[in-house]
Design a protein around this nucleic acid. Structure first.
Lengths: 335, 335
DNA sequence: GCAAGAACCTAATGCGCATTAGCAACTAAT
DNA sequence: ATTAGTTGCTAATGCGCATTAGGTTCTTGC
């Protein structure tokens, strides 16, 4: 800015006024300063800006999962891509960190907060008894919880969520209509809020219809566990006629396992993936799947965060209910 | 720091000396200051530190690809995970951005540089005629090119690369030994340095052996194009007996397509994936694949970058040649 | 024709830290 | 006993920006 001031023949303060749209300089001077700044390729130093009270212009995102389970997962990249789209418009940076578990994640938040490194954070994979909302509330760090159910205990946090319960209900509706009575839900990680929500809803729906042979089994989302559970339940005397997998990876592994065991899909067992991706169209039969717009999900979350950063109120936003895309892996139950 | 100084009964400068291990304070004072800082949960403001010449404590990473091709890709998450591991040790942040294309990527580098937002960057997907190394060299931004071939034109940049040429040569060796003479390489994006390296090497190896029916076809890495190319080449009067796919997604799509066309794998056509992941064990037959340690690749790249940041010389590091993992999708050529 | 105000600009200050210069007390060397 | 050196600290400065307090000229109202 000193350079610009010299080139434009004004004081450094005038430059600041001119470039920040503040009153105090004539339009002529403002234009001249802008032009010089442009020529010099000037950009404000984020550090200096931050030091004079403007915030870090950065948003944090922590992914808590062991390195070895960072496998085939299209959801996060898509989510991040949507987040970026919104952040980039406002020239907000995304500070990204991968850690092992939630405790480490909390430590990262504390550090970021103490170092004034981020203006806010995006939290994913909310859990039952999650320490993170409380911590963020306590630190006063603006945050948006992605995928969490509305949480009245932390009114400072925004929430963006998908209606898993509604989706599960519609899935059960559909399977029931197709004649399925024995259904196994190969769920994801226990303790994750959306896993528990789906499990609870499935149980409620089953009870409502008087179905006794409906259950959920939790896994670690890996193809290995997906296959193992599939093998176990299909080996029963009265195997399920429909399998709901909480992600695409397990669904694909499940189909392969079913085929191996001599079950034809969907004639003998229907398979539904709770995540749509290219994977679902890479196996035969093509997998029916619950489809949601992950990129848009990310955009929504980022928009909520920027709203918070602008001083807006915390809100709870629901994104559209995931829709079932019927392909070739679901059909009428065998009689 | 002012608080700490007051609590410890010393000047603010003494606090700075104490906490940074500088001479100028007695060990007693140092310990006392450390303790107070600990109690107060003090962490230095990165902005202030940066303003006084310490660098941004942040490394940049840009992923240039259209949002819709951000699909099933385990490579990047694993790479990033490895990068993080090394950066986290040094408390370096990772600023992450997704953009549409290389031009946007260059714009991001320019902005980061002007804003002093990052101390260095990691560059992925190097291309033939890539504008990025030149730009980074010009800006003087420390950088490590991941996956690039050694480049003498930009001695300021470090390079971490895998020996694709060597790997391709060993793949051809192996397939040749199995009796394959008609081989199609379903390559990735044209213009990517490693794509071109593999293509060149395949051609050279074919010529050396006098094989005329060996070729490479470039794609966009998508399952759709992988399937389309597979369909086309297997429909020929004399179809290839071996297919080399540049990633796992296309390989899986290719196997499905081959099955659809009535080709049995590996009896009638062998399939090899140039990327190993859970995907390769999610289809039947399990895919033979070239395996590399992406997490370690990331670690190596991050280590090279931190070395550069410490003022070390630019280096070119080769990671181990990917190894062929023989599973069930490759076998002797049908006579 | 003179005071009051507006318009446009400059000087000065602070953000949180690192660093340099400076200063007092004490010790070692001559 | 004086100087030189050392130790342990404080005061002061600067990094690049935003902002507040002044200051000068130019306009307006009476």
């Amino acid at each position: 800015m000193k350079d610009i001031a010299r080139h434009a023949g004004v004081s450094q303060s005038a430059v600041s006024f001119a470039l920040n749209g503040r009153p105090g300089v004539s339009e002529g001077t403002r234009d001249r300063v802008r032009q010089v700044a442009e020529e010099l390729g000037w950009r404000p130093s984020t550090a200096a800006r931050q030091l004079s009270g403007e915030g870090a212009a950065t948003v944090g995102f922590v992914l808590a999962r062991p390195a070895d389970t960072l496998g085939v997962d299209s959801f996060f990249l898509q989510l991040v891509s949507g987040i970026q789209e919104v952040l980039a418009e406002r020239h907000l940076g995304l500070l990204f960190q991968v850690v092992e578990d939630v405790d480490d994640e909390c430590a990262v938040y504390r550090r970021w907060w103490a170092e004034h490194r981020v203006d806010g954070v995006l939290v994913v994979d909310p859990r039952t008894a999650d320490p993170r909302p409380g911590l963020l509330d306590e630190l006063g760090l603006p945050a948006v919880v992605i995928g969490g159910a509305p949480d009245e205990r932390h009114p400072g946090l925004s929430t963006v969520w998908a209606d898993d319960a509604g989706a599960m209900a519609s899935v059960v509706d559909e399977l029931y209509a197709l004649g399925h009575r024995r259904i196994v839900h190969i769920a994801g990680l226990p303790g994750l809020a959306h896993t528990e929500r789906r499990i609870r809803t499935l149980r409620a729906e089953a009870e409502r219809r008087g179905l006794s042979e409906v259950e959920s089994v939790t896994t670690d989302y890996s193809d290995a566990e997906g296959a193992a559970v599939t093998r176990r339940v299909l080996g029963r005397p009265a195997p399920p006629t429909a399998l709901i997998y909480d992600n695409d990876v397990m669904a694909v592994a499940g189909v392969a396992t079913a085929a191996e065991l001599g079950f034809s899909v969907p004639a003998e067992v229907s398979v539904l993936s709770w995540e749509d991706s290219a994977l679902c169209r890479m196996v035969k039969p093509w997998l029916s799947a619950l489809s949601r717009d992950s990129v848009e999900f990310g955009r929504t979350a980022a928009r909520e965060l920027t709203a918070l950063l602008d001083g807006g109120p915390a809100r709870t936003v629901r994104v559209p209910v995931p829709q079932v895309i019927v392909r070739d892996s679901t059909g009428a139950a065998r009689r």
